[in-house]
């Protein structure tokens, strides 16, 4: 249930425990897969992402990325986009996007070409010399996504990257993310609160329980790789979102500590 199909595992989590004091957590992501995690607040989704990224150590268990164990540092080829606005206010849009490339062996002209492409791709051409304070929240998040993508990561970890955006912008950003995913062939691991976002974007969706977090179910969406936000009108999309909510409703109430008050049967 938690394994990658076809045996081409890009990331493998084995018997991971940290905040998940209950059962150890196992998961394998296939190369090029789009995997989303949904779950109630405080269930440990973001900590799970930190563990995969190498930003936090698991209490026990191992994370293996491209055959090498992840230990104490973020491996090459892994990019992370955080929920919070991580654009540097003292750098222009161009310099923010180019930030990570300074520390790599990418040649200057290649770096410039990648940044120019990302600026155009993200619709930031008119703002390349602007500072983040002059941009909207959505544009700043696009800058952060672009900063990660110009490094051409093979594994992209996204921690609620669209959390601060309105619904329309989220859908459009989702389309852009899908386009990037298809073009780069990267494996994507997305943490999200939004069930529709998970349902629209992912190949598989891991539904986590309230703390101590564990996977209640891993659902397969069976969407074609060429999908976009128009699938929200699809009947299957509605059924999938409904199924996600059915799984999560009790867990969310449990996480809020309201079960008795609202009389939920669990």
């Amino acid at each position: 249930m938690t394994g990658a199909e076809g045996g081409d595992a890009h990331v493998v989590l084995s018997a991971i425990t940290r905040v998940y004091e209950g059962r150890p957590l196992d998961l394998a992501l296939a190369r090029g897969e789009f995997f989303a995690v949904v779950g109630p607040s405080g269930c440990g989704k973001s900590t799970l992402l930190d563990v995969i990224a190498g930003l936090a150590r698991p209490t026990s268990g191992t994370v293996v990325f491209e055959g090498a164990r992840v230990e104490g540092r973020v491996p090459d080829g892994v990019g992370v986009v955080f929920q919070e606005d991580a654009s540097f206010p003292w750098l222009t849009v161009h310099d923010n996007i180019a930030f990570g490339l300074k520390y790599t062996s990418v040649a200057a002209d290649e770096a410039l070409a990648r940044v120019d492409y990302a600026i155009a791709f993200m619709g930031l051409t008119d703002f390349r010399t602007a500072y983040p304070a002059q941009l909207s929240g959505g544009m700043r998040q696009r800058v952060c996504i672009a900063r990660t993508l110009v490094q051409k990561p093979r594994l992209i970890l996204l921690d609620e990257p669209f959390g601060a955006l309105d619904q329309q912008t989220r859908l459009l950003m989702g389309d852009e993310l899908l386009r990037l995913w298809r073009e780069t062939g990267a494996t994507v691991f997305l943490i999200t609160h939004a069930l529709d976002e998970a349902a629209m974007l992912s190949d598989r969706i891991g539904v986590m329980s309230a703390r101590p977090g564990r996977f209640l179910e891993i659902m397969e969406t069976h969407w074609p790789r060429t999908r976009d936000s128009t699938i929200v009108g699809n009947d299957d999309f509605g059924r999938l979102t409904s199924r996600l909510w059915t799984q999560l409703r009790g867990e969310s109430i449990r996480a809020l500590g309201h079960a008795g008050a609202v009389g939920v049967n669990q």
Binding site: G79, E84, A86, F88, W90, G100, Y103
Partner: peptide, 29 residues
Amino acid sequence: VNPVFNRTARVQNLSSIAWVRDVLVPATL
């Protein structure tokens, strides 16, 4: 200093010198 700036520096595997020069100094200036 915004913690997410330091997390970004960790994702980039910045050396201590690069972190001070490119993140800490401009963030605190």
